[in-house]
Amino acid sequence: MNKLVAFGLLFVLSGCSGPSSEEIKNSADACVKFYKEKRADGNYVEYRSHWMKNGRLVIAMAEKKFESDSSYREGLCLVDLKEGTIELPGLFNQGKWEK
């Protein structure tokens, strides 16, 4: 798994209420950037949705050849808000994190 310590992103957990909208936006931006660097091969990547699973914020992204394309390949990014890390699950581990 690719892993990156998200320097410069300060995450503060807000009890059981889940991540704040700012945490989600910052996490989505960091995931899109990281995914582009590691897997996108120059393709367009955009945030699609998010959910919590197994204590992690899961960010779903769409990878497309061009921004205007209607078809896409889904990519997932896992954010550990406590540790301030993000990672991209491998192909055989991705099913564990789907909704």
Rank of each mutant, 00 (worst) to 15 (best):
K64Q: 06
N26M: 10
V79K: 01
N43Y: 06
K99R: 15
Y35Q: 02
S20R: 01
D80A: 02
E46L: 06
V79Y: 00
L13P: 05
D41E: 15
M52K: 02
L81W: 02
E83F: 00
P89A: 01
N93P: 03
I59A: 00
G75E: 10
G18L: 00
S49G: 09
L57E: 03
V79C: 01
I24T: 07
E98I: 09
K36Q: 09
F34Q: 07
V32M: 06
R56C: 07
S14C: 11
L91F: 12
G75R: 11
D29K: 15
D69C: 02
F66R: 06
N26T: 06
M61C: 03
K82T: 12
G84Q: 03
S27M: 04
F66D: 11
G15E: 03
Y35E: 06
L9M: 08
G8Y: 05
A62D: 13
D69T: 01
L76I: 00
K96S: 11
V32P: 14
M52G: 02
A28F: 02
K33T: 08
L76S: 01
M61K: 04
L91H: 15
S71T: 12
R56Y: 13
D29S: 12
S49F: 04
S14I: 12
A62W: 09
K96A: 09
I86A: 04
G55W: 04
S14M: 13
G55F: 07
V32S: 11
K25N: 10
K36D: 03
S14L: 13
E63S: 12
K65L: 09
S68D: 12
E22P: 04
S21A: 11
V32R: 07
S21G: 09
E87G: 07
E37G: 07
W51Y: 13
S27I: 00
L9N: 06
K25H: 09
F7V: 11
L13R: 14
L81R: 00
K38N: 10
Y44V: 07
L91D: 12
F66E: 08
